[in-house]
Design a protein around this nucleic acid. Structure first.
Length: 359
DNA sequence: AAGACGGGGTA
DNA sequence: TACCCAGTCTT
């Protein structure tokens, strides 16, 4: 049997039962594809349910406040996805009469949809025969066909797209795309794949040549750099100060406490000097109550070392009033979308709980 | 073509 | 730890 037939046979026995597969609503498929960009099904599932409940259709998403969208996305990561998903919804309302366009080329014009997602939606929602190449597909094809081109290059994209275009079942493109993704996620896994029960073991290049652990080939990336964050959890009566991150940087559109970033870890006395010198706190009557140990927060491209300073002030400075929002400290976690680093610290650290609700 | 952009699961 | 996940966007 050829590749596609074996694959579809495997899928008929092993398909995952996923909520976005039991709908024909292009909007739901769209939401699921964006959530699942660089995100495992297990991690995205609960977000999908909540997102669809909160924003059941294109219109509701398009007109929602950005903060509501971000709150629904809080904890998922790659927050540009959330902003672009809403921008895409507004785009669909404005330019496509509220209906997602039904072909690959038009879908590519929607904010947040690249080659993978556009192909996935085109095939799943509209039955177009376009291969959807994600990490799973690169892995499966590189192993079965013995392709050593590094998968994170432009030439690999062309090469795999061309191969997959020949393999895809013209009659059942959606099923083919879903099948090869499931096969990669469940059977042909990155580490210790289930080769002994694999339907392709008769002719899989990697298996026959004992190269399974060497494929796919990926070009190395640079090690993450360090950044040092000092967060100030200020208490002025029942209030504290936060702001939404608007610059081109991580955590765009999420909220945070006043932040001072340095290029290296500070000693306590260096930190004291910094507080004294900063016009953020000039004449604020700041009194430091607690300094946390540095919290290590590793991300894919950088490592953040965060120190949380809990302090009281007797009056807010001009700078504080100008650039920050004054909010009830007890409401910060439930009302605002926060990076995991901050949300996690507030949830786990006893001193932070004291900050939230002092006795 | 290369970096930036999160967070969590897995071996 | 290190790797990788239903990738996209910017420079």
């Amino acid at each position: 049997m050829d590749f596609s037939s074996l694959l579809l046979k495997w899928y008929s026995e092993n398909a995952r039962d996923l909520p976005w597969r039991s709908t024909s609503d292009p909007y739901r498929i769209w939401v699921s594809e964006v959530i699942l960009q660089q995100t495992r099904v297990a991690q995205g599932l609960s977000y999908y349910y909540r997102f669809i409940e909160r924003f059941p259709n294109v219109e509701s998403l398009a007109k929602a406040p950005l903060d509501d969208v971000m709150k629904a996305w809080q904890g998922l990561g790659y927050y540009t996805r959330a902003r672009n998903l809403q921008l895409g919804a507004q785009q669909v309302v404005a330019e496509y009469h509220g209906k997602l366009p039904g072909n690959y080329q038009e879908l590519l014009k929607i904010k947040g949809l690249g080659p993978y997602s556009a192909a996935a939606i085109a095939s799943f929602a509209f039955g177009q025969a376009v291969p959807a190449l994600d990490g799973n597909v690169y892995r499966v094809l590189s192993r079965v066909y013995g392709i050593f081109t590094p998968i994170n290059t432009a030439s690999a994209r062309k090469e795999f797209f061309s191969l997959a275009s020949e393999l895809i079942s013209p009659k059942e493109p959606a099923k083919f795309n879903q099948a090869i993704i499931d096969f990669g996620a469940m059977q042909c896994t990155p580490k210790s794949p289930a080769c002994l029960t694999c339907p392709f073991s008769d002719y899989c290049y990697a298996y026959l040549n004992n190269l399974v652990s060497r494929l796919p080939v990926k070009e190395m990336k640079n090690p993450p750099r360090n950044r040092y964050f000092y967060y100030f959890m200020l208490r002025h009566d029942k209030f504290t100060y936060i702001r939404r991150r608007e610059e081109r940087d991580i955590w765009h559109s999420l909220y945070e406490f006043p932040l001072i970033e340095t290029d290296q870890q500070l000693t306590d006395s260096e930190l004291a000097l910094l507080i004294e010198d900063s016009d953020l706190f000039k004449d604020s009557g700041i009194k430091v109550l607690h300094i946390s140990n540095p919290v290590r927060h590793p991300l894919s491209h950088l490592t953040i070392w965060a120190t949380f300073v809990i302090a009281s002030i007797t009056r807010p400075t001009y700078h504080l009033k100008k650039s920050f929002k004054r909010v009830l400290a007890v409401k910060v976690q439930e009302e605002y979308s926060l990076p995991r680093l901050i949300d996690g610290f507030m949830a786990a650290e006893p001193v932070a709980r004291y900050f939230i609700n002092p006795k």
